[in-house]
Design a protein around this nucleic acid. Structure first.
Length: 264
DNA sequence: GGCCAGGACCGCT
DNA sequence: AGCGGTCATGGC
């Protein structure tokens, strides 16, 4: 076990809607799994850093260089991005509220599968479905902790095997996507390739591009974002004003809007 | 019981 | 190109 400082705000990073497998325990410490590694991230409140208050990562020996350094996108300058997207008073507030958000470099297949599940769904239930998927079909890497099952594993199932997830009509999309990734053309690497998948439209594809392919210019528009855009921008709004970091601006807007702090 | 949740797809204009 | 209905599920 090793401990390292992370320049991020755990609450903002894990609660901004980009990921579904990081959960806080009673002490406010987040626990998560990625790339088959478990880790925890706790808020560090004794010093004020540039990005929120900072955090302490606890992970297994060598895992930082192997997994987490990249996963937490530590080499990107989010202060510069926040300044760049603060194009008006509202965006200044949203970017301030979301200070310390880092866009995680999640596993592409996990992002694809998770955001297929996300469609027309709410975040608590998405988390529940994803967790059940992992518990049923993922490798157990520690006591009661499961890796996200790879596409090859899911591709060998059929829709009936997913019934326990209670994911409803999304079962078919999950199976078809897994088979396309495992036995077809592999994991999509562009929006156009993502959009060829059954059950993947503009919104899901944008989320996968942003969170799974780390395309920081992808700009997902869901029901919350529609509300936010209607409230704070006029009809001529074009996310290109935030380019090449429209996706980060989107996360600030989404997190701010969903918090309720943007209501006034 | 209707409405909403990080929608996509189909068929009809 | 835009519209409404439909697709499961669960919480309020």
């Amino acid at each position: 076990m090793t401990e390292l400082r992370l320049d991020l705000n755990p609450t903002a990073t894990f609660e901004c809607g980009q990921c579904f497998r990081w959960n806080a325990d009673a002490d406010g410490i987040y626990h998560g799994i990625a790339f088959g590694e478990a880790a925890s991230v706790s808020p560090k409140r004794d010093t004020v850093e540039r990005c929120g208050d900072g955090a302490i990562l606890r992970c297994s020996e060598g895992a930082y260089e192997r997994v987490w350094r990249d996963y937490f996108d530590v080499d990107t300058d989010y202060d510069a991005i926040r300044r760049h997207v603060s194009i008006n008073a509202h965006m200044e507030q949203a970017a301030q509220f979301g200070a310390g958000i880092r866009i995680l470099r999640q596993e592409p297949w996990e992002a694809l599968c998770s955001f297929i599940i996300s469609q027309c769904n709410n975040i608590p239930r998405i988390k529940k479905i994803v967790e059940t998927l992992c518990a049923l079909f993922g490798d157990e890497i520690a006591d009661g902790q499961f890796a996200f099952p790879n596409a090859e594993r899911i591709a060998l199932l059929d829709e009936a095997d997913l019934a326990p997830l209670r994911a409803g009509y999304r079962d078919r999309y999950i199976i078809n996507a897994a088979r396309a990734v495992a036995f077809g053309d592999g994991m999509p690497t562009t929006m156009a390739e993502l959009l060829r998948l059954d059950g993947v439209g503009i919104k899901v594809a944008s989320c996968v591009a942003l969170f799974g392919l780390h395309d920081l210019d992808a700009f997902p528009i869901d029901t919350w974002m529609k509300k936010a855009l209607a409230r704070h921008f006029d009809a001529s709004f074009d996310p290109a004003v935030f380019s090449p970091w429209a996706g980060v601006a989107q996360q600030y807007m989404f997190y701010y809007e969903r918090s309720g702090a943007a209501a006034l």
